[in-house]
Amino acid sequence: MDFKTGGFMYILGGLVVLFVTAQSLFFMLKAWKHGKKIGMQKSDLVNAVTSSALFTIAPAIAILATVVTLAGTLGLVLPWIRLTVIGNLMYEVTAAQAALDSFNMNFGVDVQDPKIFAAIAWVMTVGSIFPLVLLPFFLKKIQQKIGQAASKASDSRLPDIISAATFIGLISAFVGNALAGKGTYNKATNTLTPGAGIASVSVLIISIVTMIVLQKISNHFKLTRFDPFIMPISMFVGMGSAVLLKHVLPSEIFEFEWRPVAQ
């Protein structure tokens, strides 16, 4: 039995799941109670749960796929733990590779030495916990500063505009990537992340159009119950369109990128 996927590691994974779930439930309960206290409709709270759950399914499956990417080197359980708490793929691969460098090894090999495995676990953990050390000290101060800046604004529209601009800035980075990003090739994991091209732009446009059309239909027919499903449906339509286009279009067109990456 591989020590990386033995019973002990699964117990650790189970404890992490319990820890994260308990914390999430605690915060949700507190928010729910406060929502009721300030007179929010139960339907609004339920809608937030439904739409968030639906919204999460596809990205969560994508995260699950990244667990598999890491599993070849670290087994299934450590990536599972790391991607359940704090982690993300880019960070985990970088941290694992940094630790492996100390042993003159490259990501992609199956780690069989518990000492190397432990070193990787330490680097992944200590490297990632910094935000949790900062938050208790600085979050309140940051929020107070922002609150003061917002209350100083002479025009009441300004905070709303700044808030919208912040969201749009975030979204723009990802939209920009779909329009003009260059793909990457990770030698260590032998994985190619495609860049911007016909496929990414088509998926982007199809999801935007689907979202706008569904919103129009919902507004026109006053389908308020349908609202929480619009965003996840649009996302799934976008993802589905990628599958359809892959099978319908000739591969040289579907895989065409503005700036192809050399492997």
Binding site: A58, P59, A164, I171, S172, L204, S207, Q215, M239, A242
Partner: peptide
């Protein structure tokens, strides 16, 4: 391909609402 292109699908559908509502401030950051 559905998983490969999850990000444009996610941010396309998420951005659509914002871009329509706040189109004037969307051009510059994009």
């Amino acid at each position: 391909p559905a998983f490969t292109y999850v990000m444009p699908a996610l941010f396309g559908s998420l951005g659509a609402g914002y871009f329509v509502k706040h189109w004037r401030i969307s051009f510059v950051p994009i």
